Simulated scan of single mutants.
Amino acid sequence: MDERKNPALEVRAVHRVHDARLEHFPEHDVLAEEMPVALEYNGIAYATMLATPADLEDFALGFSLAEGIVEAPAELYELELESNRAGVIVRLEIASERFVHLKARRRALSGRTGCGLCGIESLTEAVRPVPRVPQGGVVPLAAVLSAMHALRARQPFHGATGATHAAALAAADGALLVVREDVGRHNALDKAIGAAARAGLLRPGGAAIALMSSRASFELVQKAAVAGIGVLAAVSAPTALAVRLAEEAGITLLGFVRGREATVYSRVDRLGRR
């Protein structure tokens, strides 16, 4: 990867501290970029998130699906990116019926890194009901562990900067289907869902496992449920609210998935013993 030509990365001169001493000569470090990304639907501003400026088409579609703004990729008619000094505007044209529904929700978001629920006016909207994921087949535990292991080698932005999260979708056998990165874990999962939707991988027999290089928050479970993914695995801990929602949605939620270890917090019946 050429960091100097990648808009998602920035190379900066830094001074290191070794053994409590400031080094005299500067070195170069690579930083993950983040910038405001504004989403407009049919000409109406809806949300502004701080995100890594990569795979923004996937992000816009995944966000639209996960938030229930559209129910299928076919309801997104047009997508256009406009970059300026302030950030990026993503202009989306969606089906008229979906736009009427969007306006009726009167939801206002003001996103920032690490927070996908900032600025929501209605508390009931924040914890809105999610669809129950169909039972489907059993996912082998070994598939989840191997997929998480494989994810570690598929994070070029994190390798360069140490500042991004990764989200991946995998098949029931553990094969990684889609990997996306972003400074925000919610954004990373939106990007992965959007990429999978474009490739037709959200149908039965497609993506069965969602993997996160972060903790498992309530909103990540929401997004997995809307995408119809029955297993969500995270490197770190879940919240109590995330576990309750996973039980309600019929999702197997795993935390602390590291090496050959994991903790299963809900719906162990979806998980094969090996």
Rank of each mutant, 00 (worst) to 15 (best):
Asp2Cys: 05
Glu10Pro: 01
Val11Gln: 02
Arg12Pro: 03
His15Val: 08
His18Arg: 15
Asp19Met: 07
Ala20Leu: 15
Glu23Cys: 11
His28Phe: 07
Val30Trp: 00
Ala32Thr: 04
Pro36Asp: 08
Asn42Thr: 05
Gly43Ile: 06
Ile44Gly: 02
Tyr46Ser: 04
Thr48Met: 08
Met49Asp: 13
Ala51His: 07
Asp58Ser: 14
Ala60Arg: 08
Leu61Arg: 10
Phe63Gln: 12
Ala66Tyr: 05
Glu67Arg: 14
Glu71Phe: 00
Pro73Tyr: 09
Ala74Gln: 13
Ala74Arg: 14
Tyr77Met: 13
Glu78Pro: 08
Glu78Ile: 04
Gly87Thr: 10
Val90His: 06
Leu92Lys: 11
Val100Pro: 03
Lys103Asn: 11
Ala104Gln: 14
Ala104Met: 12
Gly114Gln: 11
Leu117Gly: 09
Cys118Ile: 07
Gly119Asp: 08
Ser122Cys: 10
Val130Glu: 15
Arg132Gly: 03
Gly136His: 05
Ala142Glu: 11
Ala150Gln: 10
Leu151Gly: 01
Ala153Arg: 05
Ala153Asn: 04
Ala167Val: 01
Ala172His: 03
Gly174Gln: 02
Ala175Thr: 12
Val179Phe: 00
Glu181Asn: 05
Val183Ser: 03
Val183Met: 00
Leu189Glu: 03
Asp190Asn: 15
Ala197His: 02
Leu202Glu: 04
Leu202Gly: 04
Ala210Thr: 01
Ser213Asp: 02
Glu219Lys: 15
Ala233Phe: 03
Ala233Trp: 02
Ile251Ala: 02
Thr252Pro: 01
Gly255Tyr: 00
Gly255Ser: 13
Glu261Ser: 12
Val268Ala: 14
Arg270Ser: 01
Arg270Thr: 00
Arg274Gly: 10
Arg274Asn: 10
